[in-house]
């Protein structure tokens, strides 16, 4: 069997509230992501899905359990080794206006990611911007995040992630801040990136329809535990766990195009 790119092995994380009560954010969660695979982590707020994302990125150490990136346990690494190892995983956050330093221009933001290519930062930046659909890239270099639209900001965040040539992109609600009409643009961009660069995705989302259409596999999280997982179509079309059923039923859906149904009032 192929070795998973990222493996979470019985990961647990608890937080202590200021009142002293203990919150089990993540409870013994195991999840594998293979190279080039797209996995959606679905859940509602407070389900622990974002905490799990931060643990996967190595931004948060689990209380117990292991995070294995290409077979290496992040917890065993020195600070310097962890820094180098997790470059292979890049985050995309929900709100690109919060994930881009408001004081930096697009050029400066990309230069941070391209700091090992000092001689060719300018050219690489323009190429990256072109690549994520901000064309011509030179037009965007001197702009500040607040001078861009929400969709454009998210593209800049994606360009910065791509600069690190990641093998896994962990996207935490990357579409929640975007207008419905823009979502398709971002999703298509993510698909292009996957095809071109063979990256794997961990897409953290509350949106079942997007999870279904975008991911190969889906894991449903509730109160810190993964209650159901499997192929996206199977899990979300024929859910077995009561919570998944409830979740699927709660979404007000628009039906896919049906052939000329004439339920409409006569003209």
């Amino acid at each position: 069997m192929q070795e998973p790119l990222l493996a979470l092995d019985k990961v647990t994380k608890t937080f202590r509230r200021s009142g002293g009560s203990i919150v089990n954010a993540v409870r013994s969660v195991s999840l594998d992501i293979g190279p080039g695979e797209t996995v959606a982590l679905v859940g509602e707020s407070g389900s622990g899905k974002s905490t799990l994302g931060r643990i996967a990125l190595g931004l948060l150490a689990p209380d117990s359990g292991r995070v294995l990136l290409a077979g290496r346990c992040l917890g065993d690494l020195s600070a310097a080794a962890l820094r180098d190892a997790r470059i292979a995983m890049q985050p995309i956050f929900q709100d690109a206006s919060a994930s881009l330093n408001p004081r930096r221009t697009v050029r400066e933001l990309l230069a941070q990611a391209l700091r090992h290519h000092r001689d060719s930062v300018e050219q690489r930046s323009v190429d990256l911007l072109d690549h994520v659909g901000l064309r011509p890239g030179t037009e965007y270099l001197l702009r500040f995040p607040h001078e861009l639209s929400g969709g454009q900001r998210q593209r800049v965040a994606i360009a910065r992630a791509l600069a690190m040539e990641p093998r896994l992109i962990i996207a935490d609600e990357p579409l929640s801040g975007a207008d419905v009409s823009i979502r398709g643009q971002i999703l298509n961009l993510l698909i292009d990136i996957k095809e071109e660069h063979r990256v794997a995705y961990l897409m953290i989302t509350h949106d079942i329809s997007i999870a279904r259409a975008f991911a190969d596999r889906v894991a449903v999280m509730m109160q810190g535990e993964i209650v159901e997982s499997g192929p996206a179509e199977a899990v979300l079309h024929a859910p077995t766990h009561p919570y998944t059923k409830q979740l699927v039923a709660a979404v007000p859906m628009l039906d896919a195009p049906t052939a000329r149904d004439r339920e409409i009032g006569d003209a």
Binding site: R54, L57, L59, R83, D84, R86, I87, M89, Q90, P91, F93, D95, A98, S99, L100, N101, P102, Q112, A113, A157, R160, M164
Partner: peptide, 10 residues
């Protein structure tokens, strides 16, 4: 988040 994002850049 932008601090975490930069942290992920190593």
């Amino acid at each position: 988040e932008f601090v975490d994002a930069v942290r992920c850049l190593g």
